[in-house]
Design a protein around this nucleic acid. Structure first.
Lengths: 166, 166
DNA sequence: CATAAACATTTTAGGCTTGAACTATCTCGG
DNA sequence: CCGAGATAGTTCAAGCCTAAAATGTTTATG
């Protein structure tokens, strides 16, 4: 085990790669992608037929529900890790549907805060409840005893935001 | 361990859920999503700056490279798990760029086979080489000794295509 | 043979996503 | 005060993606 660790360090430092390890990582990536896409597709479908809404809308509402005083547009796009312009469109539609309000920020006429309306909060609570059930069902087959290991591994993947590759 | 297994079975059969397990699964899902999005974003960016192309185009070319006699449009969309109409657009653009050709199918004037051109094959080989390096780098931090466990867990998630949930 | 059902693909409408250009506002050094 | 950046947000063009409708073709059934 520590042996494998040493090899990995050598790899990430220098440019030399172990072909077998490379293939293993590629397989892992493809499986990761497949699993994620599968769950995402199910969630999207469920949201569509049950609540006539979409995943991006759900994500925006979830972010705003967690941050109760509301968020500025830029905070929203940084939390959701999507582009600035993207959030504009989603928020526009949610405002049209009465789920969100835009509130001007005092002392800064450039910024706006976005907040859930009462209707938005209620709608989100209903969706969140079902969402948890769906996840519970979709991930029902994973061995919970191994969850922590998996979380650690995934953390290592997600955390690397600085690029080393040429 | 077998204990945990029993609990899980009970959960997936009946409608009763263990709240702690539910929360653990939700955390796992969010982390899974975050890691996948991160890798996807890096790959997309790398493909854009290095090859002036996109992930969906890469995926189409990869599928066709693996299936050398080519694939029919419907096979392509089923392999890639995207909608029929989606493939039409991506293939259109790749044909315009000379990477792909559409070939009529004998005995069935409804269908077309899509195949990589020589240029397409060469372009893909160059991209695949770099792609593997990128993955190697992005997943460089995962402990390879645990890869198989992770693959198994992900397989269980990905495989469930029949819905049990109400 | 007619014709209904199944099938392969494209088209369409609507929403998501990005990077880049643009507008408006703020801040800060001079 | 004033002008050069920095910052917040929107707009834009292009591509991705889906579900549903439309088009053309094949197959099976009476």
């Amino acid at each position: 085990m520590s042996d494998t660790g040493a090899v990995q360090s050598a790899e990430t430092e220098g440019g030399v790669r172990d072909p077998a390890a490379s293939k293993a990582r590629l397989r892992l990536w493809l499986k990761l992608l497949k699993a994620t896409k599968h769950v995402e597709a199910e969630l999207r479908e469920n949201l569509r037929v049950t609540f006539d809404t979409t995943l991006p809308r759900f994500d925006v509402m979830a972010a705003l529900y967690r941050a109760e005083p509301g968020l500025k547009m830029s905070e929203l796009s940084s939390v959701l890790r999507v582009s600035n312009g993207n959030v504009t469109g989603i928020v526009d539609r949610l405002v049209d549907d009465g789920m969100l309000v835009r509130i001007p920020v005092d002392n800064d006429r450039r910024a706006t805060t976005v907040r859930l309306t009462k209707a938005g909060r209620e709608q989100f609570q209903a969706m969140a409840k079902r969402h948890e059930d769906w996840i519970d069902c979709l991930l029902g087959e994973v061995d919970l005893s191994e969850t922590q290991d998996m979380l650690d591994q995934l953390e290592r993947i997600a955390v690397k935001s600085t690029k080393k590759e040429s």
